[in-house]
Computed example of a mutant assay.
Amino acid sequence: MKIFVTVGNTHYNSLIQAIDENLSPKQYDITIQLANGDYTPKNHEFFRYTDQIDKYFEQSDLVIAHAGAGTVFQLLEEHRRMVVVPNSDRVDDHQLDLASYLEENNLACVCHDFDKIFSAIEQAKSTTFDTYVNQPFWGYGYIDEFFEVTPSNLVGGLPIDIFPTMEDAVNHIISARGDVLPGSAIAINPEKVIQSINEPDTKEAILSASIRYADGIGVVKTLKRKSRQRVSRIPGCELWEALMEKSAEFDLPVFLVGATKETNFAAVNQLEAQYGVNVCGYQDGYFDKSQEQAVIERIVSVQPKIVSVALGSPRQELFIQQCRELCPDTFFMGVGGTYDVYTNKVKRAPLLYRKLNLEWFYRLANQPSRALRQGNLLRYLFLELVRKL
């Protein structure tokens, strides 16, 4: 039996873990979409996000879903057989209300107890459910009237994590207890959004990340318009340094990859002297494809909690993808030219430019060759103006 598990755009760690630990891959063919959840499945195939989720619905015999209104009503309108598991950890009762509606109208099997997920699947296989009819009062009209619809965080088809402050972003990655979120983070700016539209490989690498944060004022403006939330720009170099500082509080082992040998070594020495960071290993970025596996094996051997990779895009994202398969409990971050900025090898824009969100202009003025890349910014601006992002 082919089962597809989806939690939409929000995490539901307990459901993913229960399915992964309680349902055998020998009995069910399960694929899991886990959004930005912390738990990484060990027994079943998984991915975090796709803009082609309809394909997975169509290929499945049964869908297990959280009680998110958008997901549930789409499945109802497509007459999909499903098991709905409301997220009772939420502070609101919307999912429980929707679950009650499904039960009362015999539209789906509802499971409130993770220990009973197996019996819920068996029940859903044999039950004859009533056919859902989309009437004007129900369907998506019902969602708008009775549910707080989650504002869209999609920019050019990429789901972006919204952080009100830098502190929120840091605490999301390293908890107050010193636990590190496994996975990876990728900075998203207008140029990267356009690259993802043009290059499927780049988009796939970006979507494989567990965190995508707005490091570009254009992306921030789009998110504010679409979500109507407070959105802070999270410069990658500042996020990296803040993570390094917090890692030192818990003596978390850190590995640095990338830049020249001189810059890499200077960054290591400065981190140790400034914050007392526990650097368990480092490697400059001047290694070729034939040496890549040896570098990855070195990282695996020391089991760092955080790995920052400064190889430039898209090389650093592709390198991180390979590493994550062997270090599932490690947090990876692509940092571009951050080591050069941190060690003052490259001068960052003055504070005034940063406050006015003109850091991009400062870099362009000091490096005119970047003008060739500004076409992507113009295309992004056009797509934003015509509301196509």
Rank of each mutant, 00 (worst) to 15 (best):
K2M: 06
N9A: 14
Y12W: 08
S14Y: 08
Q17L: 14
Q17H: 11
A18M: 10
I32Q: 08
Q33E: 08
L34C: 10
H44G: 09
F46C: 04
F47K: 01
D61K: 01
I64S: 02
E77R: 10
D89F: 10
L96D: 10
A99Y: 04
L107G: 03
I121H: 03
Q123S: 11
T131P: 00
W138D: 15
G141F: 10
Y142W: 07
I143H: 04
E145V: 14
V149M: 13
S152K: 14
I162A: 04
P164Q: 12
P182M: 01
I186V: 15
K192R: 15
V193N: 06
I194M: 14
A214C: 07
D215I: 05
D215R: 04
I234G: 01
A242S: 14
L243V: 08
L243R: 08
E249R: 13
T263G: 02
N269V: 10
Q274W: 00
Q283R: 13
D284V: 08
Y286W: 14
V302D: 08
S313C: 14
S313E: 10
F319Y: 09
Q321F: 03
T330P: 05
G336V: 01
G337F: 02
K347M: 12
A349H: 02
N366S: 09
E384V: 08
K388I: 05
K388G: 15
